[in-house]
Simulated assay, not measured.
Amino acid sequence: MDRYDVIIVGGGVIGSSVAFQLSKRGRKVLLLDQGPLGKKASSAAAGMLGAHTELNVDSPLYSFALSSKQLFSDLAVELKGLSGIDIEYVDKGMYKVATTEEEALTYQKLALEPAYQQQQIKWLDGNEVRKCEPALSTFIKGAMWIPKDGHVSAPALSIALASAAASFGADIKEYTQTASFIVEKGEAVGVMTNTGPVRSLHIIVTSGAWSERLLKESGLQLDTYPVKGECFSVKTHQPLIKGTIFSEGCYLVPKKGGRLIIGATEQPHSFSEQVSVQGISSLLERTKKILPSIEQAHWEKTWAGIRPQTQDGLPFIGEHPQIKNLLVATGHYRNGILLAPATGLLVADLVDKKTVRPEWKEAFRLDRNHVYARSAFS
């Protein structure tokens, strides 16, 4: 029987980041995925690196997101060297646009907050925004200009992390279903897969919205639920915008080759990956109000991704409260790409029993909701 230091269940961007960090530290790692690597939520993401678009500066998730965003510049170079893959890291800033007077007043005040000032964020009125991005409509009342935010190619990041892990010796098995954990005397010692048992010293569950099913038999009932998000993309001969545009209800992310990704709808409690006419139609209407010239773009494609959300909006990252050496990293919702580098480092530090920032360990702990199911191992 094969034996590893670490088995990671879930080959999306979070699992691949964890595999990269642990294999880089010399751990013998096995990365498992029930399908092809990075083909669920990770491939559906637009790749935004926006710590200031949705996160509250008073939340520990904000400092975690900032620490993760700061890793991307060096990570892009490192991954290119190890895997040969360009993750298309772009640092051209982001506009959090106001489409109502109420939003405009709110964003003006936020831009004056010390935490925002430290990131060189400033308020631009409607005319100033359109000087920077002439294609934006007069529907825009103004925007918070966030110069340090950017984006990457989400599919490229996922595959680059997995490839870099493999370059350090990690084994990767796709189309491998993990059916259950192997637990002996309250300690995780392996997993049972559709090809047989595999033993290891640590198990890490990074299966996104699919983590809950596997964890239920371990007695852990995480307060998570799936959220379907629909997106579409178009192409133009000349780029319509230079920076990322984020508004309540939709975002626009410019990619190389004149490609523009627009997302995303939100449908809670759905594992369906079908794209609806209603969802794309509503998204397109919101986009046209912000960027009217999109009507002249060439349609490319639509898709949907299933993202893992939590009731309190914080991810679950930590060790199982009842089973030793069983760790979980899930619930990153719309920020999986942004949080992947920091999550990889945090989980690797937990495996290595290193000291981690107390506020992160406390905020992301698995037992914070105090809900337990009946364990098959109890």
Rank of each mutant, 00 (worst) to 15 (best):
K148N: 06
V205N: 01
T244P: 01
R199A: 15
S233Y: 07
I261T: 06
S59T: 04
E103Q: 15
G38P: 01
N335W: 15
V191S: 12
P134K: 01
G12S: 10
E187D: 11
I204F: 03
E174H: 03
P358D: 03
E266A: 15
L222K: 02
V97A: 01
L79Y: 00
P341G: 06
I323H: 00
T106V: 15
Q119H: 05
F139E: 02
S17M: 02
D149H: 07
K288H: 15
G249N: 11
A135C: 04
Y107N: 11
Y175S: 04
P114R: 03
D86L: 12
Q267K: 13
Q119I: 00
L326P: 04
G318K: 06
G196H: 08
P226W: 09
C132G: 12
H202W: 14
I87D: 04
P239G: 07
I85A: 10
L124W: 13
I337Q: 12
I317Y: 06
V205A: 09
E102L: 14
S153I: 11
E54S: 08
Q117A: 13
L338D: 09
L201V: 01
I121E: 08
E362T: 07
Y89H: 14
W145R: 08
K354V: 00
G50S: 12
L49P: 02
I87Y: 02
Q322R: 15
S378Q: 13
E187C: 02
I262S: 08
D74S: 03
G38D: 09
N335A: 15
L215G: 12
L222C: 00
S68H: 08
L240T: 08
A156G: 09
W210Q: 06
K354T: 08
T265M: 09
T244L: 14
I121W: 08
A188V: 08
L105M: 01
I121G: 02
A297L: 06
S83L: 13
I306S: 00
D58A: 07
L339G: 00
K141E: 11
C231T: 01
